[in-house]
Nucleic acid binder design. Structure first.
Length: 598
RNA sequence: GGGGCUGUAGCUCAGCUGGUUAGAGUGCCGGUCUGUCACACCGGAGGUCGCGGGUUCGAGCCCCGUCAGCCCCGCCA
């Protein structure tokens, strides 16, 4: 009997999927799920599946007797069976090169059905080319969907990534410390998930949106280097890349500057991507926020292709083009992208690009096309020879322009740039362009109210050079905040934190948090900062997104064992669900019925 | 909060301009078959056309509402 210490139990000696030609001649006991079955009348073949893979079991009545053969022939798909038998080489004509175990099979001596299964609601084993069941079915019958080899691979990869992160961070001297799940509600930022308190009538806990305050306090407490694979919760609407509960690798360290966190993160990414089968090289590229916005219109640009934005204000400034003139007169600019070979895009495609630009707030999208030496398009007649020269369009090129405030042109041209690259098919496969975006502004301005808000979060330290700007020109002040971006997707964000309580008060006051409010919401942090706080900073990285990228999955749901739907429901278990009236009373909670009671 | 797409057999889908008894593949059940691996072959069962209302002589198909899933905008410090 061959055994393997990480596979063997008292009931089985090996996993199905781990058997190879070298095991031929040995006796094994297997336990697995019936993935498929072929009944040839005399001989019966079972495909037996476990987390390692699938192996063929042959059930020959000459060896096991008619009764066992009949039982094997009658077993339903997805039933759990125990098989005892000998690993044998298949006859040469019977080998299956598509299977990792295809050189061998297990010749059964006994077959015992220990977990009979009703007919599965959705197929687990699919024929080549057979469509996946709908997302809804898959989520409703998640226990079956998770049996699919693809999802097993994803979930196992996720495990390996988390182990890699733990190993790397522990090796760097980081301590894994848990922080509370029942926390204080924070009116800042995203909506909290709220948990009513039984012992404190009318009071509530919140589930954490991040362990931010706790990890800062751990630095105050002297733990020096902290990490946690932390579950976080946000009661916001969902997207394909956003779940209401998600997992972050959360890191904080003392006596660090940005360069320390950058180095640590790059080291971690090298290890994670190696675990995922990719060799990547550190250090990563850097762009300041200002450069990223200027060149790509985005704070998380995809660098796998060009199509950079350029400032065309000077080209259009002297023209009679009304759109350009009015934008410039109101302090805006004309910005554009040159699209090499873009003249091949159809009018309809460019119209769709314009729709995207309008959706981002632009009034429209000006187009110029050069074919041969001929320049065509609505603005062409306004451009003199000098302007044409500066456009620097080659034959077959297209240029697209948006006019207005930078906020609008950036958003519009960012979308146009991404969609153009997709339409032209110039986004290369298999290229990993990691990027640090640094020097985010301290504050953003709510266009509706004009109020200042933190770009990152209110605990982010200002750039040392820009501290004086806080009081004179806060919108120009840069923060020591940084994002790590891959191919246009934000994978992590972090900052150096404020450790000076006086500075923290100043920043609070700029974003409209007065002394009393600050004390009420963040009093415990402020006290901590007054009690001897080291300079500190950190970062948080999205485990789900990283796992999705490395698994090549199309959705976060494919790397989360039990994900929620776009309305934050768990279809399998039926959450959320009502609570008995008596329980609500205990929690001092009453459901408002109808508008009158709201 | 808003927009788009989808919902027909266990599963994946087709269903024409509103017109007879709603079809296919697969799965399931029964039968034949000793080297298959999408086994093959023969036979069979299986439908609240998401739900509610309306228009019509007649609705899977048209209209209104509603629920669910997916995608997007807003939102996500």
């Amino acid at each position: 009997m061959t055994t393997n210490s990480t596979e063997a139990t008292t009931l089985r000696s090996r996993r199905c999927g781990s058997l190879r030609a070298a095991d031929a001649g040995t006796d094994v006991r297997l336990g697995g799920w019936v993935h498929g079955k072929r009944n040839l009348g005399g001989l019966v073949f079972l495909d037996l599946r476990d987390r390692d893979g699938i192996v063929q079991v042959s059930v020959d009545p000459a060896l096991v007797g008619e009764a066992v053969r009949d039982a094997a022939a009658a077993v339903g798909k997805e039933s759990v069976v125990l098989v005892e038998g000998e690993v044998v080489r298949r006859p040469p004509t019977g080998e299956n090169r598509d299977m990792a175990t295809g050189e061998i099979e297990v010749r059964a001596r006994s077959v015992r059905v220990v977990g009979p299964a009703v007919t599965p609601a959705i197929p687990v084993g699919r024929a080549k080319g057979e469509a996946l069941p709908s997302e809804e079915q898959r989520l409703r019958h998640r226990y079956l969907d998770l049996r699919r080899p693809e999802l097993q691979r994803n979930i196992i990869l996720r495990h390996r990534l988390m182990q890699t992160a733990r190993r790397y961070l522990a090796g760097e001297g980081y301590l894994e410390i848990e922080t509370p799940i029942l926390t204080k509600p924070t009116p800042e930022g995203a909506r909290d998930y709220i948990v009513p308190s039984r012992l404190h009538k009318g009071e509530f806990y919140a589930l954490p949106q991040s362990p931010q305050l706790y990890k800062q306090l751990l630095m105050v407490s002297g733990f020096d280097r902290y990490f946690q694979i932390a579950r976080c919760f946000r009661d916001e609407d969902l997207r394909a890349e956003r779940q209401p509960e998600f997992t972050q690798i959360d890191i904080e360290a003392s006596f660090v500057q940005q360069a320390d966190i950058v180095r640590l993160t790059e080291g971690l990414f090298v290890e994670l991507w190696r675990e995922g089968g990719h060799a990547i090289v550190a250090p990563f590229e850097h762009l300041t926020y200002a450069d990223a916005m200027e060149r790509y219109g985005s704070d998380r640009p995809d660098l796998r292709y060009g199509l950079e934005l350029f400032d065309a204000t000077a080209i259009f400034a002297a023209t009679e083009l009304g759109i350009a003139r009015s934008a410039i007169a109101t302090g805006g600019r004309v910005r554009g992208i040159r699209v090499p070979k873009g003249a091949s895009l159809s009018r309809k495609q460019v119209d769709e690009l314009e729709t995207l630009a309008k959706g981002a707030g632009a009034g429209g999208l000006l187009r110029l096309k050069r074919e041969g030496s001929e320049l065509s398009g609505p603005p062409a007649k306004f451009l003199d020879a000098g302007a044409r020269e500066r456009l620097a369009l080659a034959g077959g090129d297209l240029a697209l322009f948006a006019a207005g405030a930078d906020r609008v042109t950036s958003a519009a041209l960012d979308r146009v740039r991404q969609e153009t690259a997709r339409l032209l098919g110039i986004v290369p496969d298999g290229v990993l362009r990691f990027l640090w975006v640094t020097d985010f502004p301290m504050f953003g301005c709510d266009p509706a109210t004009g109020a200042l808000g933190p770009t990152h979060h209110p605990f982010t330290a200002p750039h040392p050079d820009d501290a004086p700007l806080l009081d004179t020109d806060p919108l120009r002040a840069r923060a020591q905040a940084y994002d790590v971006v891959l191919n246009g997707m934000e994978l992590g964000c972090g900052s150096i934190r404020i450790h000076d309580p006086e500075m923290q008060r100043r920043v609070f006051s700029h974003i409209g948090i007065d002394e009393e409010t600050a004390q009420r919401r963040f009093g415990f942090l402020l006290e901590g900062l007054r009690s001897g706080a080291p300079p500190h900073g950190g970062i948080a990285m999205g485990v789900d997104r990283i796992a999705m990228l490395l698994a090549g999955a199309g959705s976060l749901r494919d790397v989360i064992a039990f994900p929620k739907t776009t309305t934050a429901s768990a279809l399998f278990e039926g959450a959320p669900s009502p609570v008995p009236e008596a329980d609500l009373r205990t929690l001092h909670v009453r459901i408002a019925n109808g508008a009158g009671e709201e």
